[in-house]
Design a protein around this nucleic acid. Sequence first.
DNA 1: ACTCGATATCGATATCTATCAATGTTTGTG
DNA 2: CACAAACATTGATAGATATCGATATCGAGT
Lengths: 94, 94
Amino acid sequence: MSAARALELSKQFKAIADPNRLRLVSLISSSDGSEACVCDLTEPLGLGQPTVSHHLKILVDAGILHREKRGVWAYYSLVPGALNTLADVLSESR
Amino acid sequence: MSAARALELSKQFKAIADPNRLRLVSLISSSDGSEACVCDLTEPLGLGQPTVSHHLKILVDAGILHREKRGVWAYYSLVPGALNTLADVLSESR
DNA sequence: ACTCGATATCGATATCTATCAATGTTTGTG
DNA sequence: CACAAACATTGATAGATATCGATATCGAGT
């Protein structure tokens, strides 16, 4: 694996290598319609709103979540295939 | 996903969420006999021996690598199934 | 236009992390 | 036993990160 490829992948793995962000991804994927807004996510995580927004931004910047603003609410959903790419990397190194 | 489970998984994801450690796993898995000693890993990574030992320890502590001392050399290999578990977690959240 | 509610951004801080130089430990060899 | 090689550990430091409080932005309704 090239250093460049490793750096690229590590950015995505870093994004999910946090307990609260893992729970965010899990909560969103199991939400109704596979999307959720920030207000639905602060309470189950026990974190403040700015902190949740911060984590969501990291996941969006890493290409793992998609953000769609509808009215006052921001809806977050999984980017199709993003996690599969990471899963494949791990599966290939068995 | 429970907070405890998320914390447990995040420790393993943190272990591989580093470009040098991703390359270590890749190098080891593609090595002859699927194992490598520290002396084989410092040069391709361009890191010092203590730094490589540090990264390997993190991967061992996370349950991703196995360490076997034979003579003066320490041979590192993948723990069977460890990466598959992580891959499955990602696949389940599609 | 004004206000309110939802979300994002900013600033600060405490904690963690990666790296290296130096040193310690262990194993094989003469 | 002394020495050398492979590896681990320690100490120090610079950089990254998580969290929070305060503030800014943005859209909806009155």
